[in-house]
């Protein structure tokens, strides 16, 4: 998977690059629209992460032009302007998703994964997890083909941790994923504990879940062998 990061704020672009490289993506950086357009002509990208506030060209205009030269790429708009109109215009122009800054890199990766799954329409989307298997397209977790009854939020939580497996996730990161902008400080984080407790209880009835670890003082982690 190859990503073009179009972002004029260098240190932000570098952080995104560092994160994506760890997640085994190949990254190119463009700090201006001009460079971005050149790169789009030179190579093919799976994802183009597009900041709207570029110095030399309006991001939405760049999106319009880019859709012509790189029609197969998936576009995610990253913006700090937060104008509602931008969001609507961006999606109208063919962007696949829209993330308002500040966003979590984990959330960005999760959105990218969702887009990939949506676009490729993978039939075989069963991911093993300990003695269980997670069906990413049907959004359920099974034990020996038996579907385990998890609430929607419990499933969301589990699949988010699975996507970022072997990585400690804070309660905040988890609650932001579950409740988005409505997430409200420590108060919501406490509900993450409630949800994880429920997930543990429901799954342990079938098999042990030692892969779902609590990291004291931080949060949770799904630990599986790569």
């Amino acid at each position: 998977m190859k990503i073009l990061i179009v972002e004029d704020e260098r240190s932000l672009a570098l952080e995104i690059e560092a994160f994506m490289m760890k997640a085994f993506y190949l990254c190119d950086l463009a700090f201006t629209a001009k460079v971005a357009q050149q790169k789009m002509l030179d190579s093919k990208y799976d994802f183009i992460l597009l900041d709207l506030g570029l110095p030399d060209l309006d991001g939405l205009r760049l999106l319009e032009l880019a859709k012509k030269s790189c029609p197969d790429a998936s576009y995610i708009i990253l913006t700090a302007r937060g104008d509602l109109e931008d969001r609507i215009k961006g999606l109208d122009l063919g962007a696949d998703d829209y993330l308002a800054k500040p966003f979590s890199l984990l959330e960005l990766q999760s959105r990218m994964q969702a887009i990939t799954r949506r676009k490729s329409g993978l039939k075989d989307s069963m991911v093993p997890l300990g003695d269980f298997s997670v069906d990413l397209s049907k959004r359920v977790i099974c034990f020996n083909n038996q579907v385990i009854d998890l609430s929607r939020k419990e499933y969301d939580l589990l699949s988010y941790m699975l996507l970022h497996k072997n990585r400690p996730l804070t309660r905040l990161q988890l609650s932001e994923h579950i409740w988005g902008n409505f997430a409200d400080d420590d108060y919501d984080s406490n509900y993450i504990d409630v949800h994880v407790k429920n997930i543990r209880k429901k799954l342990t009835a079938f098999a042990p879940v030692e892969w779902l670890q609590t990291i004291r003082g931080v949060g949770y982690k799904i630990k599986v062998e790569a």
């Binding site: 704020e9 240190s11 932000l12 952080e15 995104i16 994160f19 500040p102 979590s104 984990l106």
Partner: peptide
């Protein structure tokens, strides 16, 4: 945004 991503 930069700080958050750096921390992450």
């Amino acid at each position: 945004s930069i700080l958050q991503n750096k921390f992450e």
